[in-house]
């Protein structure tokens, strides 16, 4: 019975059907399921299936966006108005840096990481490096992820690790991705990781959180 309901939620999420996902989440709650169970067996299971389908060549952006939106709506049903209560495998900070207005990739990353149980602090687009680092200092994240689509942000990225290390924030990993940064190497950008897709980012974060 629960299994069938859960399967419906998973399907609604994979289909990116926001309204159906919200209905199913309500029904699962009404049936007495704990929200942690709904997250692990419903939301995370849907994300795992999407992950398996998405390679660099076969990345259906709309599909992921719709699924991401459905996931976010389901999360809102589970934790109305209280994002701080999300169970978390760890915190990740995301940003597009100053002068870069591209944020679609970053937003997708946010949805994928959130759906897999990470708490995401989003510094938005056009974010100065210093604000990013101040946020890192406050939030003690596993990693900061920078989405960079224009090459002019590269000098800013090169400062991130050095500046964090100067503040003693040596544990925090720096991840980079997006069209401009994919063209470079991790060493030349002075970051710990460069990923092709949002799921590459997720896999790297999973190695950090040991899940």
């Amino acid at each position: 019975m629960h299994n069938a309901l859960m399967q419906k939620l998973v399907q609604a999420l994979i289909d990116g059907d926001q309204a159906m996902a919200v209905t199913q989440t309500h029904q699962l709650q009404a049936a007495g399921l704990a929200r942690e169970t709904i997250i692990t067996d419903g939301i995370e299971s849907a994300m795992t299936q999407l992950d398996a389908r998405c390679t660099v060549e076969q990345f259906n952006l709309l599909e992921i966006m719709l699924a991401g939106r459905a996931v976010m709506s389901a999360m809102k049903v589970l934790y109305p108005g209280d994002a701080a209560m999300f169970p978390s495998q760890g915190t990740i900070i995301l940003a597009s840096l100053e002068g870069d207005v591209h944020d679609l990739g970053k937003n997708i990353l946010k949805m994928v990481l959130t759906a897999k149980g990470y708490r995401v602090v989003d510094c938005g687009k056009d974010c100065p490096v210093d604000r990013l680092i101040a946020t890192a200092r406050q939030e003690a994240p596993l990693a900061v992820g920078i989405s960079g689509l224009i090459t002019t942000v590269i000098p800013q990225i090169r400062q991130v690790r050095t500046k964090m290390h100067a503040l003693g924030l040596t544990q925090i990993k720096v991840m980079a991705g997006g069209a401009a940064l994919k063209q470079a190497t991790a060493a030349s950008l002075q970051v710990d990781f460069i990923g092709e897709t949002a799921f590459d980012c997720l896999h790297y974060v999973e190695t950090l959180s040991g899940s």
């Binding site: 952006l61 709309l62 966006m65 719709l66 939106r69 944020d103 679609l104 937003n107």
Partner: peptide, 8 residues
């Protein structure tokens, strides 16, 4: 993002 959601 809004444009893509609007399209759907």
């Amino acid at each position: 993002q809004e444009a893509l959601y609007l399209a759907i």
